Simulated scan of single mutants.
Amino acid sequence: MKSRRYPDTSHVRVRAIKSTFTAEGALCGATLHVPEDTRTDQQLPAILMLGGWGSVQMAMTSSFTHSFVEAGFAVMEFDYPGWGASGGFPRQGINPWRRTRVADTVLAHLKSQPMVDAHQITLWGTSFGGGHVVDLASQHPELTGAIIQVPMLDGRAATFATPLGRLLKLSMLGLLDLIKPGALIYVPTISREGEFGTMDRDGAWDAMERAMAALPHLGYDNRVAAKSALTMPFYRPWLRLKDVKVPMLMIGATSDTVAPFVSDKVRRVGNPNVQVIEIDADHFDPYFDPLFPEVLAHQLKFLRR
C-alpha cells in the first residue's frame, strides 16, 4: 500500500457561500468558496469544479479548492441532481450527458454571482468530471481556460480495463436495473481491491478512507445505481477535444487503470490549445501527498499564465 497523506490546507481562511440552482427539475446545492477577507463589491476570477464518477462537494477536492482560494480565486463546487446536498430522484444515478447539461446550468449560476468576474472563469474537472469539462469547454469559447486531471476521456477504454467477471456482473445488474419496475438496484461505488464495486483499483478504497478521515463531517453514500455503468462505453469525450478553443491543461497519469489515459488518441487529435503533462501516477495519487504539490504547481502555473 502506498504511503498517502491527505494534504493539510487548514491554514487557508475561506468564506463558504451556499446557494441553490435548479437543474433537470431538481433544486441543487452549490458552494462558492472565496478568501475570507474578500469585499462584497469585489469581483474575483473564478473556477468551476466538476468532480468525478461518484463525487459530492469537497470529497477529495477540498485541498485543491482551498489552494485555489489561497491563490486568489473564487471556487464553486456543486452536487449533481440526486447526489449530496441536491434534491432529485431517483438518487445516486449517473448519466454523463445529463451531467454536462447540469454543469452548463451551474456555469450560468456561477457567472451570476456578485463576487465573480463573469469574464474570468476557468473550468476544472477530475476523473469523470474531466470528460464533462471537455464537453463544456467545446461549447464555451468565451471561457478563460480549462484544467483536467486524470480525465476519463474514453469510456470504451475504461470499460475494457474492468476485469471480465466484474464487467459481466455490472452489465447484468445494469440491464436488470434498467428494465425492472420499482426501486433501483445499487452497487458499491468504491470497494476494496478484488471486491465488487465500480472502482476497486489504484487504491480506491484507501483513497476514500483517507479523504473521509480528513473530512469526518462530510459523510458519503457509497453506492451508485447499477444502470449507470451501462452509459460508460458510449461516453467518449476525447472525440470533442478537437472542438476546444480555449487553453486547456491536461494532466494524465500513466499508471491509471480506473480511467486509462488515452495519450495516443489525444496526440491523434493534435489540438494546439491543449497542453499535455504526463505524470507517473495512478488514478488517485494526484489528490494526496507526496504528489499533490507537484500537480498543484502545474495547475497554478497554468492559471497564472
Rank of each mutant, 00 (worst) to 15 (best):
R4A: 10
R4Y: 03
T22V: 15
A23M: 09
E24F: 01
A26I: 05
A26E: 06
L32W: 01
V34I: 15
P35W: 03
D37G: 00
T38M: 03
D41N: 14
L44I: 07
A46F: 07
L48E: 09
M49T: 06
L50M: 11
L50I: 15
G51Y: 11
G52M: 08
S55V: 00
M58D: 15
F64C: 02
A71V: 07
A74S: 06
V75I: 02
M76W: 00
D79P: 06
S86H: 04
G88F: 11
F89R: 14
A103W: 02
T105Q: 09
V106P: 02
H109Q: 09
L110Q: 04
P114T: 08
D117M: 07
H119S: 13
I121K: 02
L123V: 13
L123N: 05
G129L: 08
D135K: 00
A137L: 10
M152H: 13
M152N: 13
G155D: 04
R156C: 05
A158D: 09
P163A: 15
K169Y: 01
K169I: 04
L173I: 05
L173G: 06
G174M: 11
L175N: 11
L178V: 03
A183D: 11
L184H: 11
T189G: 05
I190S: 07
I190W: 10
E195M: 11
F196L: 08
T198D: 06
T198Q: 14
M199P: 01
R201C: 03
D202N: 14
W205H: 12
A207Y: 08
A207Q: 03
E209H: 05
A213R: 15
H217R: 11
H217A: 14
L218R: 12
V224L: 14
V224M: 14
M232N: 05
P233A: 13
Y235Q: 10
W238E: 12
R240Q: 15
M248I: 04
I251Q: 10
T254G: 03
D256M: 07
T257C: 11
A259W: 03
S263I: 13
V266I: 15
R268G: 09
G270F: 07
N271D: 08
P272T: 12
P272L: 12
N273W: 09
F284V: 04
D285A: 15
D285H: 12
L296H: 01
A297N: 12
L300K: 07
L300E: 03
F302R: 03
L303S: 09
L303I: 06
